[in-house]
Write a protein that binds this DNA or RNA. Structure first.
Lengths: 224, 224
DNA sequence: TAAAATAAAGCTAAAAGAAAGGTTAGCGGA
DNA sequence: TCCGCTAACCTTTCTTTTAGCTTTATTTTA
């Protein structure tokens, strides 16, 4: 399986390449958007890992360009924590998935596997659980009876829950993924947002629930 | 969960050990690569935190050596800021993850959790005795006729019993393992929790029983 | 030595206490 | 104005203690 890795930060690029190669991918690393476009023109890849912030040509433009050329190669976008709107842009531009830095290798590998599995590609920009959908581009949480546009943090929490239905997500995990390792925020922001989400799910007549497991975390449970 | 910490800088080592122990890891600290190798030979650890720059034998060599010996214990490498290439080397040598100094405790703990999860994760997430199962992930105690989600202490007691069916567990042993040596709790909390568990086992129609042996302890007995 | 008395050990419901989690108002910054 | 966050207060759940009761073991007494 051949992957193109476009990431300008040398240390991260090297590390990623090593991880990917240990997992039996052949990886070409490039360090700016222009190089990425050249490589994508000349070669056939099974997947692309594309940082958004890159010198010369940014990731979104690279993505848009290759899609215009009819290239349907699956693309995983890497975004820094704060570049939230970039995600939306990226999905609109035809990305298959995105990953927020910092991330761990297991997650990266899982996403790549998921992405390359169904070569069918084209952005699945909706998450679904029970009678609820979450639009990854517009941040809309909907059921038949209505919808809310979620704020950023709400969205990220809901996304994590919906990507792992039936699995427990540790409270610390929310903190790490959404607030970052160096955040000073109190642990109870998580409770606060869980509360917001439950309220909205309830108002929408959702048939999914967010369950708590004491001393552990939260889980999205779908109806049977 | 037992960890080996190999870090030559005394102050950092002490601090890390304290943090880890506060998070319920048992930590052995060693101060050079040679010691690390000795400890890794003689003992079983659930994870290793390995500084790269160490006296006598460096971390990468330690890592490479134990991997050659077929030891698959998860290893988290600690690298100083600039040693970028070391990361790559380290991952190639078979490290599971790495962390750049300086780092904060939340990140360290997250990495350790992630690293050790793989190994143990779905190994065996269920304990079984008679017609009863205990789900180690959800804390659910079940039979065909239903289930209870156990609270923390209840769960720990039940786990100890189910890991030693037919063996006597001293009341004092419960105290040591679950409440800790420095607990102020009275001995009769054990009786109280035994009582809770019996009630639930009974309500579930379990065919196992918790027997008492006077002046000794308790034993889970399975039907013949 | 059998029966009665006493002591020790263990059992359990309920109350008290502690901790975790939930909710809301409000403040400050884009 | 919307968003993110904190802080205060509320609710629920878990843990421990209390106290009275039952069972089992030991000692005493006839």
């Amino acid at each position: 399986m051949r992957l193109l890795l476009a990431e300008d930060e040398a240390a991260l690029s090297k590390a990623l390449k090593a991880i990917l190669e240990r997992n039996n991918y052949s990886v070409d690393a490039v360090y700016d958007g222009q190089e990425a476009l050249e490589y994508l023109k000349s070669d056939n890849y099974d997947g692309v890992i594309l940082d958004i912030m890159m010198p010369k040509i940014d990731g979104i433009t690279v993505l848009r360009t290759i899609r215009e050329q009819g290239n349907l190669v699956p693309v995983l976008l890497l975004t820094a924590k704060s570049e939230v709107d970039d995600k939306v842009l990226g999905l609109d531009a035809g990305a298959n998935d995105y990953l927020t830095k910092p991330f761990n290798s297991r997650e990266l590998l899982a996403r790549i596997r998921a992405m390359t599995r169904t070569q069918t590609a084209q952005a699945d920009s909706m998450l679904r659980a029970g009678n609820v959908t979450l639009n990854l581009a517009t941040y809309e949480l909907s059921t038949a009876s209505g919808s809310y546009r979620l704020a950023n943090k709400e969205f990220q929490m809901m996304e994590m829950l919906m990507r792992n239905p039936g699995n427990l997500i540790a409270t610390e995990r929310f903190m790490e993924k959404i607030w970052g390792y160096d955040s000073e925020a109190e642990i109870n922001v998580v409770w606060v947002y869980i509360s917001y989400l439950r309220k909205k799910l309830n108002a929408l007549g959702a048939d999914v629930k967010i369950n708590v497991k004491r001393n552990a975390g939260y889980m999205l449970v779908e109806p049977k």
